[in-house]
């Protein structure tokens, strides 16, 4: 017999323990939203009903934790996340087609876009986190510092959710789709303590800080790779086609050189290979980055 919504959620979580943390979080927030609504409603509609009976009735209709858990498992098997739709026919193609097929792979372009915007998001997260931390530390001598700090910790969770949406959309890694609710019965001080003692708040904050150097690295790496490949690919057009010597020549020790015309075509092919490799690299790093984001931004210790 389940005695509280919290206990229900705990059992539901245990049922899903070996599943994707993002499904667990979805299932828990769906259940919490529904059970609270249904329970409050039952108490209003049947004022004579005891709280235990109301809860039992609500759970009877919603389903036991193991019924609900199996419903999520079944659906999840059939639903791939956003861009990461795996194409099963790829395995049968030749290695040549697989290598160049990356141009038609939306997850590679998504990952490349992620690498390029990660400089901007990295700067934004870092600035916000450092400003928030120092402002809170400075104001901590005043009572208002506690509130500022609390708001700042909440905002870090908000940022973690936004980053989660970006990671899911561009890297195709399942991430939680909504914030976890705080327990309505707790007072402000207890909620603040929960926020403060929750390891997830801090791992999200560390993620925000390290995202700056990581973002700078991704951005520089991929912009350089793309610029180099585009230069090499376009070189024969500039040199042989348009004769733009000022662009295509380079100066070493006062003497001006130019590649022989035939060599620019070799470089163009090399550039094409480099661009393709860049997309593969983006995909691989994207997978790694998705794993990092998941391990630092998705809570594992709910309830």
């Amino acid at each position: 017999m389940i005695k509280s919504i919290k206990e229900y959620l705990h059992q539901l979580k245990n049922q899903l323990v070996n599943n994707d943390p993002a499904i667990i979080q979805d299932a828990l927030s769906d259940a919490e939203e529904h059970l609270r609504d249904a329970y409050n409603n039952a108490l209003v509609v049947y004022p004579n009903m005891s709280e235990e009976e109301a809860l039992a009735q609500v759970i009877e209709k919603y389903g036991t934790p193991d019924e609900v858990a199996s419903a999520y498992r079944e659906i999840e098997v059939r639903t791939p996340p956003a861009l990461a739709r795996r194409k099963t026919y790829t395995e049968k193609r030749s290695s040549f087609a697989r290598f160049f097929g990356v141009y038609a792979d939306s997850s590679a372009w998504g990952a490349l876009l992620y690498m390029i915007i990660s400089l901007g998001t990295g700067v934004a997260y870092f600035t916000w986190t450092v400003t928030g931390l120092s402002l809170s530390a400075g104001l901590m001598v005043l009572i208002v510092g506690i509130f500022v700090f609390g708001l700042f910790l909440l905002s870090v969770r908000g940022l973690a959710l936004i980053e989660g949406r970006i990671v899911e959309g561009l890297l195709g890694v399942r991430m939680p789709t909504r914030p976890r609710f705080s327990d309505k019965t707790l007072g402000w001080w207890d909620r603040f303590k929960n926020l403060f003692t929750d390891g997830y708040t801090w791992s999200a904050m560390i993620y925000m800080l390290i995202h700056l150097p990581i973002g700078v690295f991704y951005f520089s790496l991929f912009i350089s790779l793309i610029a180099t490949s585009l230069w090499a690919i376009l070189l024969p057009i500039f040199q042989v086609g348009l004769s733009w010597d000022r662009i295509t020549s380079f100066t070493i020790g006062g003497t001006s050189y130019q590649f022989p015309d035939w060599f620019t075509f070799v470089l163009a092919i090399a550039g094409l290979l480099l661009l393709t490799t860049t997309l593969h690299l983006a995909k691989t790093i994207g997978r790694w980055q998705g794993g990092l984001a998941k391990s630092m931004l998705v809570r594992k210790d709910t309830y």
């Binding site: 529904h34 419903a71 639903t79 789709t177």
Partner: peptide, 15 residues
């Protein structure tokens, strides 16, 4: 069961 509707809603949204 009502609880089985929610994963369906999510999968419809994902699609």
């Amino acid at each position: 069961k009502q609880g089985a509707l929610y994963p369906v809603l999510r999968s419809l949204e994902n699609n």
